[in-house]
Structures are given as C-alpha cells and as structure tokens.
Simulated scan of single mutants.
Amino acid sequence: MDPESRALPYNKEMHALMRGRDLLGFEIVGIGDPIGKGLTGKDAGKAIGLPSVDFQVAPRLAAALQGLRPELSRRADTLILGYVDELSRIRRKDVLRETVEMALDQGLHVFSLLALPRERYADLYEQAEAKGLHLYYPALSAREAQQTLASASQYPQVDVPVVAVLGSGPQQGKFTLQLALRRRLMELGYRVGQIGTEHHAALFGMDCAFPMGYAPSVEIPLDYYAPYLDAKMRQINQRKRPHLILAGSQSGTVPYNVSEPETHTLSTIAFLMGVKPDACLLVVNSIDTDDYIQDTIDGIRALCHAPTLLLAMSDKEKHVREAYGRTSIKPQPMSEEDSRRKLRHLEQKFKLPALSIASQADVHKAVEVVIDYFADKENKERVADAI
C-alpha cells in the first residue's frame, strides 16, 4: 500500500500538492485549515476548483490529524505541515510545536515546510525517535553544500538543454507551471531533471530542492549559490542522464525599482548564474506594465544570454489593497474573455506565444514550443558543423 498523508493548513503550497497529486509518491487523505478562510467543511477538491475528492477540509488542526473518516485515519502515516508562522503570531503561541506534538501523539511522521531545528526542538526529536518516527524539514546546510562543492570536479559540464521558469513577481503560478511541464514531458516519454526552489519540491520527485522561497532554509551565503547549483546540475546530468533539466526560480527576476530594496532580486540572479539556462519561460502578471515585462525579457538575455521562448499568465488577477499601513495582494479570478484579451495583447506586443497556466491545451503548447526550439537549434548547429 502506498504511504498516505494529511496536510495543513490549506494554503497555496497545499493547493499545489492537491493539484499535482498524480506526481506525488503518496496519497493525501486529509486536509485541515483554520476557521475563518471560508474553506472548512467544503470538499477539499472543489474548494480550489478541482474535481471532488472523498474528504472535506477539517475545521481544526486536531480534526485533520485525527482524520475525518476512520478508514483514512488508520491509513495515514505522515503529516505535511505548511507555513504556520502567521498562525503562531496571531495566536501568540508556537503552533509549529503544538501541531508536531499532536502529530507524534497520533503516531505520524512530520514533513514541515517551516524549519524545525533540532537544537530548538530537541525534545520533539527525542519523542519521535522513541516512537520510531521521523521529523523532517527541507534545508541546505553548509556541511551538505561543502560536500557537494568538493565533488563538483568529478562531473562534466551539463550537456542537455536547461529551461528556466522565471517570473515578474511573487505568487504567479510559477511552481504550478513547473509541475504542469514536468507532467507533460514525462507523459511524452522524456526523462526530466529538475531543480525546484519551493520547500515541497522534493515531494514531487524533483532531483533537488533548493528552498530559497518563503522562509528560506538555505544556510549558505549568497556567493555560494551559483557554484553549489552548478555542482548540483552536473550531478543530476551525470547520474540521471535526463533529456532536459527544468529549473524554477522565485519571485521577480529584475528589480522593479532599484531604490526599493524589497524589490531586489539578488537570490534569483544568483540562481540564474548557477543553473545557466539555455532558454526561459517567463510568467507575468496581468497587471504588469509592458515596459516592465520588456525590461525583464532584456534582463534575462543580459544575465544569462538566454532567450525568452514564451510568456505565461495565471487565470487570476492581482488586486493590491492598502489598509492600516499594510499592503496586501489578493488574487481574484479573471473571466476567460479578459484572460484571452490580455494574452492576445502580450502576443501582439512581444511577438511571443502567450499562454494560460490554467489551460491544459496551453501547457501542451508550451511543451511543444520548448521541444521545437531545441530541435531547431540542434538542426542548425548540425548544419553549421557540416559547413
């Protein structure tokens, strides 16, 4: 029987797990979310626009851990715990500790997206070990990085196409696109090497998780990003012999305003220097200005000498709200007409294919664009060699 898991809270990371269930090596049998977001009690699939599943979103952490159906409760063996730092702030207590304790009481292993350092939670690790359970969180330690760097010279340079999924900002669907590309390429019989920068990348079978996104747990200086990633790319290339490697970054690619440090993109630039893409797919927002999109395309070309093959866009539009001195961004669904109109504008303006991340047909087209580009490039190189 395949291992099975429960997940909470029901945020965008858990949405990705539900949308990409076919790419997981386990089954999700329960979801929990705090009351107040309007999701509790709803079918966990329908709540995010997916087909119905056999369980509802539980209203409390304890309910999700105990399982909504006895037969599911007996089967699940792992809790996938998302970002609960905001809950801890609101409730003024360590929700991470509280939830892990409940999971251990239920006899569950824990995969936490937030850091769960042994030096801070030594007692939880002792409890887990006494019960034969495991606590895990994605992290890149300095020691692991040193070991990888020390062996880098053993592997030759990457000799397969590298495609990067980049963006013009945060919360756009870049990871959703990476999963969709992975799925389609594997359906077509391609061996896919992949580096993901989301903490839960490894759950989808990606070859390397480089957790530099929200609440980053990469414990090496920025200067070491590029050499470390170069070494990992070589390892993946040599050990897996993929047909191509996908690499997905975080947030924006070029600063929106160099005078505002919060828009700086140093980690993304370092990531690009490490993975050295041959081509890029750029995810944009419907509210991005044409000038900023062009700046990003030009910036990608300048940074890594790679062309942007296409533009991709979510089916949601960002609405910026300011209240009590704080700015929040809330995505709202776009009508199909508005989405297609924006995509047509992008195609006409930038002379590139513009596709919807939410459309399976468009994802298939994106894969065709990638395959055709490298097939044409290889043919041109063969002609040049013959001449």
Rank of each mutant, 00 (worst) to 15 (best):
Q250M: 13
A139L: 03
D2A: 12
G193H: 07
A386V: 11
H305F: 09
V370W: 01
L17V: 10
H15C: 11
K380S: 15
P353N: 08
R321S: 12
P156S: 05
S52C: 04
T197C: 14
L108R: 04
L61V: 15
Q235D: 08
P307T: 04
R234T: 06
A103F: 03
E381V: 08
D362Y: 01
A145I: 02
T268P: 08
Q194W: 13
D223Q: 14
L352V: 03
G30K: 05
L114Y: 06
D291G: 14
E187D: 14
G20C: 07
G248I: 10
R382Q: 14
K46W: 00
L8P: 05
Q66H: 13
D230G: 07
R97F: 15
S286R: 02
T265S: 10
T289E: 09
P34V: 04
G30Y: 07
E260L: 14
Q171F: 11
V163G: 05
V258G: 05
A152T: 08
F271C: 02
D2G: 01
A384V: 14
M334V: 02
I90G: 05
V160Q: 03
D315F: 00
Y136G: 01
M212V: 13
R191I: 14
P227D: 07
T265Q: 13
R75H: 13
G205M: 08
G32T: 02
Q360V: 09
V53S: 03
V192W: 04
Q235M: 10
Y324P: 00
D298K: 09
Q250D: 01
A64G: 15
V192P: 08
I48L: 05
T265E: 09
Y256K: 12
T289F: 07
P9M: 02
F204T: 04
F350R: 00
S359V: 06
K342A: 07
